[in-house]
Amino acid sequence: MNIGLIQRSLREVWFASLAMSGIVFGITALFCYAMPRVQARFAQRSFIPQGVRQFRDAIFGGVDSTGANIAEIAYAIAWSHPLVLVPILTHAILVQTRVPAAEVERGTVDVLLALPVSRWNLYVSETVAWLLTAIVTLGAMYGGAYFGSMFINPDIRAVATPDWGRLAMVLANLGLVYMVVGCVASFFTTIIDRRTWAVLCTLVLTLFSLLVSFLYTIDPALEFTKSMRFLSILDYYKPLAILRSGDWQLRDMGILASTAFTLWIVTGIIFARRDITTT
């Protein structure tokens, strides 16, 4: 790990990271303010359409939402809504497609590789810089949730405020999803020297992975996709289960962590061994 290289990376991504953190903060705050009110209205209804329930369960990684209270459902939705997940995962993709692809495209990779640091050292330094920005971005999500909850109507505040410790556990689960996506982006950027292609490949894979969770809710003819849900990252992200039980989802988190770690190692080996030049 090289402090100078970490500083270089942070200088490159600080603006995008702050902007993305601001967006994440704002959207999460809005959701965490509005969702409990919406959920309180839903709770007064005796009947919730099957389609809505199915869609909700799909978002929750297949966890049945029957019997969950307002705060649990509201925050589980807020923390798994695509509007919140997209900026978070976009941040991972933006930061992790820089080295080497963006440096190759910009022509700066020759200067970077002429520095007296090993490729592994460079790779580790890049990862550390990424994780530091990830803390800010994911922290913005937690901060946004807290900020939004401060404005919840006092009438429902008692039942619409989550257990903050459990929400931190959800954040850890989401952090692992974020790391898998970041490592996929890093993998593509290492094997493809064009950033646009690396971003595109990561997006296609991520979108496919997200969609696999929802396909069966759209049409009964797509029921067979239920068996493919193990390919979806949302299947390993369980905000509702954590908020309800307060238990770590060790199996799911273990799968995410080992996937991210394996990808990180494989990418590092490729990065250290392959030819890298501007042209």
Binding site: G4, Q7, E12, A114, P116
Partner: peptide, 26 residues
């Protein structure tokens, strides 16, 4: 010390900050 044929540097650097950064990395 090496200089590539088609030199590109990070656009946000100044000469002074480049000396600091490269010195820290080295």
């Amino acid at each position: 010390g090496a200089i590539p044929g088609d030199l590109r540097l990070w656009p946000w650097l100044t000469g002074k900050s480049a000396l600091k950064l490269f010195g820290r990395i080295r």
